[in-house]
C-alpha cells in the first residue's frame, strides 16, 4: 500500500430508483476519487441494473443519474467491474450496459475483493 493511498471498493448490489442507495453511493465514489484514493466499483446482484442503457426517468419524476457512470472516467475512475453471473441471471450482456466495464467471474470478483483495504456497500 502506498503512503496514504488505500484501495476503496464500492460494492453496488442494489437496483436504482427503488431506493436511493445507488445514487448516494455515486456521490461517495466521486468524493473518494477527489481524495486521490484507488477507487473500484463492483456491480453485482441487482446492482448490475444501475448500468442498464436507456434509463428514462421522466415518468417517475426523479433525476436520471445514469449519465454519471459515463462521467466517472473524467474523474480518473476507470475500474468498473461487473460480475458475469449476476449480469447473465438478469438477461443482460455487456451490450446492454451504458459504460465500458470489466466483466469478472464470481471467483475473480471474490479475489479482487480480498485485495481491497476498504469495502463500502450501500
Amino acid at each position: 500500500m502506498s503512503e496514504g493511498i488505500k484501495k476503496f471498493m464500492f460494492v453496488n448490489r442494489k437496483a436504482p430508483y427503488g431506493t436511493i442507495y445507488a445514487l448516494e453511493a455515486l456521490e461517495v465514489v466521486l468524493i473518494t476519487a477527489a481524495f486521490d484514493q484507488d477507487v473500484s466499483l463492483a456491480f453485482l446482484d441487482d446492482g448490475v441494473y444501475q448500468l442498464k442503457k436507456g434509463q428514462q426517468t421522466k415518468g417517475i419524476d426523479t433525476k436520471n443519474f445514469s449519465p454519471t457512470y459515463r462521467a466517472l472516467e473524467g474523474y480518473d475512475i476507470e475500474k468498473l467491474y461487473v460480475e458475469k453471473e449476476s449480469m447473465e441471471a438478469r438477461g443482460l450482456s455487456e451490450d446492454d450496459l451504458l459504460v465500458d466495464v470489466t466483466v469478472l467471474s464470481r471467483k475473480e470478483m471474490g479475489e479482487l475483493m480480498e485485495e481491497q483495504d476498504v469495502l463500502l456497500s450501500f
Binding site: 488505500k6 476503496f8 456521490e27 461517495v28 468524493i31 473518494t32 477527489a34 481524495f35 484514493q37 469495502l119
Partner: peptide, 20 residues
C-alpha cells in the same frame, strides 16, 4: 459535514464497518 468525512474515516481508521 460533507462526505469527505466518510472517506477520511476510511483512510484513517484501521477498520471501517457498515451497518445498514
Amino acid at each position: 459535514s460533507g462526505l469527505g468525512q466518510l472517506v477520511e474515516a476510511g483512510i484513517q481508521a484501521d477498520r471501517l464497518v457498515t451497518f445498514g
